[in-house]
Amino acid sequence: MNRPLVVSTLLVLLATAAGCGSDADESSDSTLTVLGAASLQSTFEEVLGPRFEDSHPGVTIKFSFAGSSDLSAQIDQGAEADVFASADAANMDKIDDQVDNRVDFASNTLQIAVPPDNPASVSAFADLTSPDVNVVVCAPEVPCGAAAVKIEEATGEQIDPVSEEASVTDVLNKVVTGEADAGLVYVTDVQAAGSDVRGVPFDESDEAVNVYPIATLADSANAGLAKDFVDLVTSDEGQQALRDAGFARP
């Protein structure tokens, strides 16, 4: 093959690998590592994280956000962390013997997201069953898709989606770009997307309420601080921040 290309590719790889090793994360004071479901990112990172650091001088809080199943698997594989906030009970259940102080702190329901001009005039859950409407949902394998299936079963209305995405973000992107006429996402996703999408609430969403549990990890080296963070999330202050982001009470 083309030698110069191969060589330059290897050089790029080496340079990238070299750059990875220099993450300075051992600060002089203690660091609290919080693993959170992706939907919690803005609330934790912008509101609760800074407040926690303000009330705990010298403590640095480090967040890692991803899908709850990824985070649960990481903890199971021995990732070092102090707190885990999951977007559903199932992923907390998987590691139930590795956590303490488990408590439900929020809930989230599905909402229909449509482009701002709502090209297919979607106004109710039943509209999603029309073959003329391009509907995107999460695949049944992921929590938001499981919730959609639950609603379908409860209502007897069958959606025939054009795509079943692996994450709620992918569903939202298809709506934001106007590729899809409607998507089923969480209330908090609609709120976070701002003016890019319009949310259409529907009564049947009560059929599938996702409850978010949070817990400290049994192996945490900062058990006291970890408990403090859980307490902040469940305090009035923490609950207000979650309300502001669209979450409901557990």
């Binding site: 995107v136 394998e141 992921v142 054009v162 795509s163 079943e164 995405e165 692996a166 590729e179």
Partner: peptide
């Protein structure tokens, strides 16, 4: 990003692997 993910229509093997990882 561009095509979506639906069995038999757009969900190729890498997308199926990515999805199966979840469950």
């Amino acid at each position: 990003t561009f095509a979506g993910s639906l069995q038999g229509v757009t969900r190729t093997l890498p997308l199926e692997i990515y999805l199966k990882r979840e469950s």
